[in-house]
Design a protein around this nucleic acid. Structure first.
Lengths: 343, 343
DNA sequence: CTGAAAGCGCTTACAG
DNA sequence: CTGAAAGCGCTTACAG
């Protein structure tokens, strides 16, 4: 009653039993050449009987295609990555491909190769600074299909990237603090040094200041690293000097959470004593006390779009070189706005 | 200046240039037989010059091993899965393997095969009901290495499983509501029907009731599906009938969030009017208002342990058949407890 | 310690 | 429409 283990059934077995050549079976399976009706039926029947599943690896070696997409992340623990992964996975599987995920950080490992690349995937999605410019350029030079996520292409190479609009949103949320809430001494919690999101969010911060004739004060700029704990620590240290400030712009929601904790502990009330705003609008943000005013970034869509661009490359269609997804300020209570009904 | 594309450099090229046979190069690369010092150095030098990377697929075909682990999930959007993925990924990469992830739901797809399996991985981790008993049994029968996550083995097959302690924790949190807060009419938001976590959490609910001589009342049991929206809807409908109740045990934190929203909207205060508790302790839980009393489940550790068991199988060591990770009630404010300092 | 050769399970020109 | 055969890039008995 037990069927032969499918892993031991080969195309050869099917061919023999169906009385045809392996070439014909292969053609039938791949539908890349017509096989006569009669032969087709015989093959199908035998495949069913034998419970035949083509050996993916053998196929890959023969076709030089893996039908797998790689996704290189800097982290997968943070809640931020769940929607990103979800978005990528959904379009990858829709296209009948598999998804290989890995975390990696350029530089962190010595000369260790990234775990995904041309040796095991047909193309890959590279998040932020998981790979550095040199590595990206090398892959591009070798014509390896690449799409960048939350970062742009090095050296103006025509590598598609999909990211979110950081600059204007950052300015806008600053405008809101300055214009609407009359804040004048705004602390900025910046992200990791070489992260583009960090850069543009800080640019927005600076420009808003400038546009309103407010001084840029480096004492008010803290290193948050887009990390809760680092932001908490930075904020704590900052507070210990009894500084003058009336608002905090954490350029990432996790940073905002860390800052909020430090503020709470120091006895400062948000938003009565100090306004607090974030960036990203992760799931958690609307559940904070007070609910966090932040910039909504469509992270799952970023994942989907990035995967879509990659498939365009694989299908020799021309991808969009830059996909800049819109973001939007979401007013909640942490900035000092009156109660806004929950979404 | 441009190096030859690594993808076109084969072991043959290396062998030729180093003046040895491909067999020797292969042995040097795999260190599975000694090669003379002199030859080794020559090969290494050539490999560097040529920027040679062994072709993974060819290797796989020859060795019949993929060096990739599959992870089958029911979902990857929810925050719950970020730590799980992170845990799995960390040990998979530590072992020099790759990780293929996919979402799948037994039954949801017709006779579509799961995207990961023996054809593209050396073993896989199966979360909850992503695969049904029949599919699991079939894989086991074919000796495909398997570890189950958040579910036990069908038909007492010796397939390792790693999950969390649901039953006692569920009873304990109920005890807390009953004994400490004197609750008598406790609503239960149950999970998906065929999910083992659902079953045991409900068992805990029932037994706690019974142990205290409280009646089990089916009107108080609602379908939450471990989903925020479903729980919100179920709670709303429940509330519309002006029921008598004094507590809600949502058997999943996302459920608790949905319930909390419905309770807030109906004007009931948590915890003053009704106590609310959850299960899992996702990141978000401690940030709710009020902070959620819940059961902490070590989700990242579940991921790590599951992967570890799988590697034991792959290395022919005997795995632990049942890994039951401890959980712990975390008292916060939503149950009615006084202020408890933040962790 | 090293090499020649078969084989892993497919695909795909090339003929017919 | 079908088959024989070479080839994808490795690994691994088998000899020596």
């Amino acid at each position: 009653m037990t069927r032969p283990s499918s892993s031991s059934v080969t195309i050869r077995d099917v061919a023999r039993r169906a009385g045809v050549s392996v070439a014909t079976v292969s053609r039938f399976i791949n539908r890349n050449a017509v096989t006569s009706r009669e032969v087709s039926e015989r093959i199908q029947k035998v495949m069913d009987e034998l419970n035949y599943v083509p050996h993916a690896t053998a196929r890959q070696l023969a076709t030089r295609k893996t039908r797998v997409i790689g996704l290189l992340l800097t982290n997968m623990f943070h809640d931020f990555f769940a929607p990103l992964l979800s978005g990528v996975e959904s379009v990858v599987s829709q296209n009948g491909y598999n998804l290989l995920v890995a975390t990696y950080r350029s530089g962190a490992q010595k000369n260790h190769q990234p775990p995904v690349g041309s040796h095991n995937t047909d193309g890959m999605l590279v998040f932020a600074d998981s790979l550095d410019n040199t590595q990206i350029t090398r892959l591009y030079t070798r014509k390896f299909p690449l799409v960048l996520i939350h970062r742009t292409s090095p050296e103006d190479l025509p590598i598609p990237c999909v990211t979110v609009e950081n600059h204007i949103a950052s300015r806008n949320i600053m405008e809101h603090l300055i214009t609407h809430h009359k804040k004048r001494h705004i602390v900025f919690l910046r992200g990791p040094a070489r992260h583009e999101d960090s850069y543009w969010r800080e640019e927005g911060y600076r420009q808003a200041l400038q546009a309103h004739g407010l001084p840029f004060c480096s004492d008010l700029v803290l290193s948050g690293g887009f990390e809760r704990d680092m932001s908490y620590a930075a904020m704590r240290e900052f507070l210990s000097a009894s500084p003058v400030f009336d608002a905090v712009f954490a350029s990432d929601d996790d940073s905002a959470i860390g800052a909020l904790k430090a503020l709470n502990e120091s006895g400062r009330r948000v938003p009565e004593d100090v306004a607090l705003v974030g960036f990203n609008d992760i799931n958690l943000s609307s559940f904070l006390t007070p609910p966090l005013t932040t910039v909504h970034a469509p992270t799952e869509q970023v994942g989907r779009m990035a995967a879509q661009q990659l498939f365009r490359i694989l299908e020799n269609e021309s991808p969009d070189l830059v996909t800049l997804l819109p973001t939007q300020v979401i007013l909640r209570r942490s900035c000092g706005c009156e109660y806004i009904p929950p979404e």
